[in-house]
Nucleic acid binder design. Sequence first.
DNA 1: GTGTTTATCGTCAGGCAGACGACTATGATC
DNA 2: GATCATAGTCGTCTGCCTGACGATAAACAC
Lengths: 253, 253
Amino acid sequence: MSPYDPSAFPPFAVTVDLVVLTVRRHALCALAVRRGEPPFQGRWALPGGFVRDEEDLTAAAARELIEETGLCAHDPLAPVRDNGAHLEQLATYGDPKRDPRMRVVSVAHLALAPDLPAPRPGGDAHSARWAPVEALLKHGGYGREDEQAAPLAFDHAQILADGVERARSKIEYSSLATAFCPPEFTVGELRRVYEAVWGVALDPRNFHRKVTGTPGFLVPTGGTTTRQGGRPAQLFRAGGATLLNPPMLRPEA
Amino acid sequence: MSPYDPSAFPPFAVTVDLVVLTVRRHALCALAVRRGEPPFQGRWALPGGFVRDEEDLTAAAARELIEETGLCAHDPLAPVRDNGAHLEQLATYGDPKRDPRMRVVSVAHLALAPDLPAPRPGGDAHSARWAPVEALLKHGGYGREDEQAAPLAFDHAQILADGVERARSKIEYSSLATAFCPPEFTVGELRRVYEAVWGVALDPRNFHRKVTGTPGFLVPTGGTTTRQGGRPAQLFRAGGATLLNPPMLRPEA
DNA sequence: GTGTTTATCGTCAGGCAGACGACTATGATC
DNA sequence: GATCATAGTCGTCTGCCTGACGATAAACAC
């Protein structure tokens, strides 16, 4: 076989699919769109679309993110935390049978966003919504029995599971959990992010000691807020540190 | 734009590239092949090739691995450690300009192998060899000045750097370092793997305590060996544990 | 035997995490 | 305005793990 013969290659379609995660009402939620066309018409799926000619993979993912949510992708190298989302490549899925129509290789991306008021069904999807990841993984996002309970389209359940696992493990050793928070947030709000993503309860006192004691993780802004009720809490911004050493330990049980 | 119109998609070529790592003579080495055709003719590159029709991405990577090294890919789920290599997906590289001829998306894979006697230049490459990763990253693998010192072809230097970083971080919290070892090995041999991959010196006594004290990491076979000289050392096989908790800490300096 | 090499066991101090007590500052309720 | 509920913040104590390092054991070379 010729190693790199550009004139004789099997043609593939390349798409990007997005696992967009946020924390809403103490639950880890993902963005799902309802498919308006076959295959899997009417089923829920991850947002995504074709990579365009002359378009980088990350650019395609950022474009889809804007189209679906209005969120700007947050450049990981940018020093200032705007209102954008964290975006990174997740993995690539290329089973020959994953799309019944043709050979499609999908480069999945993971996006982490602060809580958004409402999903903006922009672009092509008939509708879009946030749904708890457990519900999406178990029966396509429906909790009530009277609605159809079909699994996600294509191999999107696998992609979503991989994205959730990536997020769960990555907030252990990085400051990525702040991507779920608004630009200014309290220690308690950050703790609730960890609790929602991991699905556990954390000791508020030990958590406070840990995050405030890790250099570069949190920067106090000077302000306080009582939006969570109770005693006013200090407001923080995400510090420059991206890697937490030693890491935040996830309880085993 | 139509979200999933299979008849109107820009065609891509999809390839797999391999970062094959091993430890030779106390150094982390990667497999490099010399390109026999333009572009980048005569330059060193990572092994790889087109994904075939009806071929899964992992299958394509495993096929390339066999063609280039004779190594069988080690199924991560297989309980018994044969002489195969660990193989996992690394990342996907799709810059529109990464191949000057056409749009090529490459799904890079990372393979970890025990020390092999000699690279087997099979398949298409004019020649193949192991080279220390530092040399490959700095000047394409040549240490002497009188030979050409061109960087790796395409974006392979970036891919190699990402693969090395993945390996360096992953042996921290997983038992993956045993993939660099033969089926039976000593604690000292495993320690030399860590030292080569990380480029540091580790305390033999603390290392011994750590690896033998982590349940499921190492299983004694009962035999001993003196192949490293000195006092006979116990032989171990890799245990069933894949995740190390608490992790093996990489020295910071 | 003596020296060298490698493996293995022990000891000790410092750091960090989990468990939990105590106190503080707000809003809600009566 | 007193009381309560809520949430935040500071401390203490204990156990585990790690890093530094001493000491011993078992092979080989000469």
